Computed example of a mutant assay.
Amino acid sequence: MPPRPEVGVSTAVFRDGRVLLAQRARGALTGLWSLPGGRVEHGERLREAALRELQEEVGVEAEIVDLAGVVEVLPRGERMDFHFVVLAFAANWVSGEPQIGPEAADIRWADPKTLDNLPVTDDLHRIVSLASALVG
């Protein structure tokens, strides 16, 4: 276990009034739907990390509008296997059709108000609501 929280990024990408969600393919949050994202690499700027992770996970390019919020990701239960501080960005889709892969078991453009009633990670509704207000 790392001695301190790790920094991660995610991106709420909007296209035609819908937000891109990815179903986690591995790790403690497997099966839950969330925003594409991952760890920030040493020396990497946060926005660059968000765009890189978006491309690596689902093959989409976007233009970041602004920071939407911060989320702490902790295990559900008593085990402390991980602790992430995730900076979530709001962005508009530019190009690329989302693809599944090793990190994303499934993908979907979802209604930002209901998130299609999917099982989602903690705080996702709040972050998507904030991001939606930023992209207008």
Rank of each mutant, 00 (worst) to 15 (best):
G31N: 04
E44R: 05
E41K: 03
T11K: 08
A131I: 15
V86T: 13
E53P: 05
L20V: 11
H125L: 07
G77H: 03
A104T: 14
N117F: 14
A25R: 02
V85F: 07
A49G: 12
T121G: 15
P5M: 01
T11Y: 02
A104Q: 12
D66I: 02
D66G: 05
R24V: 12
Q23Y: 00
D122E: 15
E41C: 02
G37N: 10
V128A: 03
D16A: 08
D123G: 15
V7G: 04
R76W: 04
V128G: 06
R26P: 04
F14A: 04
S34G: 12
G101I: 00
D116G: 08
G43Y: 10
L21R: 11
G27A: 05
G17A: 09
D106K: 13
L130A: 15
W93G: 00
G17E: 07
L35F: 03
L67Y: 03
V40M: 08
R45C: 10
L74P: 05
R24K: 09
R18Q: 06
P5E: 02
E48P: 07
S95E: 11
E56C: 06
K113G: 12
G37Q: 07
V7S: 09
E61Y: 06
A62F: 02
D81Q: 07
V60T: 09
E72W: 04
F89H: 15
A133R: 15
G136Y: 07
S34L: 10
D123R: 15
R126F: 00
L54Q: 01
P5L: 01
A91I: 08
G69K: 03
A50F: 00
W93A: 00
D16M: 01
V19F: 02
A131S: 15
G77D: 06
A88T: 07
L74R: 12
R108K: 13
E63F: 00
